[in-house]
Design a protein around this nucleic acid. Structure first.
Lengths: 328, 328
DNA sequence: TTGTAGGCGTTATCAC
DNA sequence: GTGATAACGCCTACAA
């Protein structure tokens, strides 16, 4: 009960050993006898001692904590955060999360992290303009994940979405589709890149005249709206690509409840390879951004920038992977 | 660029005013002349000064930060966290998030928060046993949200799921249903309560013999499996309640693709009133736990416990709200 | 191997 | 109204 107020001094008093020796013993550093160390460790455990990260960070001038902003309702962000936890554990780092919501923008999320004095901040596909990004990135080591924005001093890690769209278009062509529409992600992160990737891939196959971009945003509702539009057409396409899996899910649900067979009547593909799309009742063809890889690279860049080992801006681009499922 | 390393000392030097006066001026406390204050504020802004929360917390022995653990892939948790942000902003608090994932359990998430020395920790529908909860709750002020577990010194805020199930059963009875099955949530938070709430409501209407609990867990796939079982029956029920909206979604998708009309052939209802269930292509009848209300109560309890104004365990139960949509 | 003396950035106390 | 000073909990010298 009284724990959380246990300090290193309590451990020292309990063992009769000096504070500095306790500190050394606790951190597993050499410079203390085995007997002393086990004594200290036992006492710390008994007392429920947890080092105060604030005090440690204050003194060490670094916290080994990386802040992460992400969209609370974005399934891909969740996947990336999960990978970040895995990668962080492997590098002895801890993560602190700050979410963006419809009522809390990236700047607010980053501000909260700034107060916390993280060593670095990771922005997962943030919904910001270039000017804001530059402003945010100027205040602390910052790495952008899953976005192709750039700002001075801000590193970027992202998947090659241009290649990803080419994979999808190629796959659909192999399946015999030629009329392939695209549901847009609006001004979401990577929105323009995926849209242009789709256009480029279509042109590369001589399908310039079939290019068809439906308006949207990164939400299931956008998929629902797009499906409704398609159903109202007298000459719908034979396949639809979506900016992400959430949109694809909205598409699928609406199409199926309208009695359209997928993929026979209309093929559908998403993007991001999220849990949502992998559900057996969705099971949508998609492209993986390889979040584990993105997470690892992002933390690596964040650390080297935090330690001042970076100059200019690094940009890591990870190759995507096609995930074929039942909707194509 | 160099910001984030701007300290109160820099502001003092810049203005030629003492550190203590700068501190007072910055916090808007009385005890400093208006001229001094505006001088300080201007300099702080110019330098991009942000107080270091670690140092402040160290000194003040409280951080005005509340830690929150939540399931990264649970849609209801996301809704609750969003409400928590709103409520926290209203109370001058900041939130620090620590997620649980398949590879990171509640204990790990709480540990991370403990290092951070939050004033209190909120556990959103944690997946823990009573012993672990008691252990976690003994270390710092802890409030449980959306769970009916109990532990010494741990406050609880939750919706009245027993009443919620009664609302749903009552609603279905009004619609003329008598054979109402229930798809279980397994050992998820509130799993037992909802199952028993269903049973109790059925018994209250003399429908004890119609009680029918299908096994499940809080996932869409559980809904898919349950629907498959129902479809194989020669005497299926006329309505199905699900432990949550995700299960209900799995049910709906499977039923519809099997050609069952909803609600005519089979009525379906979920629980939690999540974004997923609100989609126009799902549009499932459900029960809201009133997350805004839960969030407010949770923070209130967290604060009073952090300030030592609590004794024993508080338990706040919020009345649920029926949300009728097209599936019933 | 162990103990002592700063100092990290802040705020509270107490002089002036 | 203003400014020195100590203390929060910890770690890194440096001294014993």
């Amino acid at each position: 009960m009284a724990a959380g107020r246990v300090t290193i001094i309590d451990v020292a008093r309990e063992t009769g050993i000096s504070v500095s020796s306790v500190s050394v013993a606790l951190r597993g550093e050499p410079g203390v006898s085995d007997a002393t160390r086990s004594l200290v460790l036992a006492a710390a455990d008994r007392l429920g001692y947890q080092p105060d990260r604030r005090a440690r960070g204050l003194r060490e001038r670094r916290s080994r904590v990386v802040g992460v902003t992400f969209g609370l309702h974005q399934t891909f962000h969740a996947a990336l955060v999960e990978s970040l936890y895995d990668a962080a554990a492997g590098q002895g780092l801890d993560l602190v999360l700050s979410a963006t919501t419809p009522g809390r923008d990236v700047a607010a999320a980053v501000d909260s992290l700034r107060h916390e004095r993280c060593d670095a901040v990771l922005l997962v596909s943030p919904d910001v303009d270039a000017a804001t990004l530059a402003e945010l990135g100027s205040r602390q080591p910052t790495v952008l994940v899953g976005s192709d924005l750039t700002a001075p001093g801000v590193d970027t890690v992202r998947a090659d979405d241009d290649a990803g769209m080419a994979l999808l278009v190629g796959h659909l062509l192999e399946r015999g589709h030629r009329t392939i529409s695209f549901v847009d992600g609006g001004d979401a992160a990577m929105g323009a890149t995926r849209r242009e990737g789709y256009r480029r891939a279509m042109r590369a196959h001589g399908l310039e005249r079939e290019i068809d971009v439906l308006p949207g945003d990164p939400s299931e509702d956008a998929g629902v709206r797009a499906a409704t539009m398609l159903l109202a057409r007298h000459a719908p396409p034979s396949a639809v690509l979506a900016h992400n899996d959430m949109i694809a899910t909205g598409l699928l649900l609406t199409l199926r409840s309208a009695g359209v067979a997928v993929p026979e009547g209309l093929a559908v593909a998403g993007y991001d390879d999220t849990r949502l799309g992998a559900l057996s009742s969705i099971d949508v063809t998609t492209v993986s951004q390889e979040p584990a890889r993105l997470a690892e690279e992002a933390l690596r860049l964040a650390l080297s920038r935090a330690e001042g080992r970076s100059a200019g801006e690094a940009s890591v681009v990870v190759p995507p992977r096609l995930v074929i499922r039942s909707t194509t």
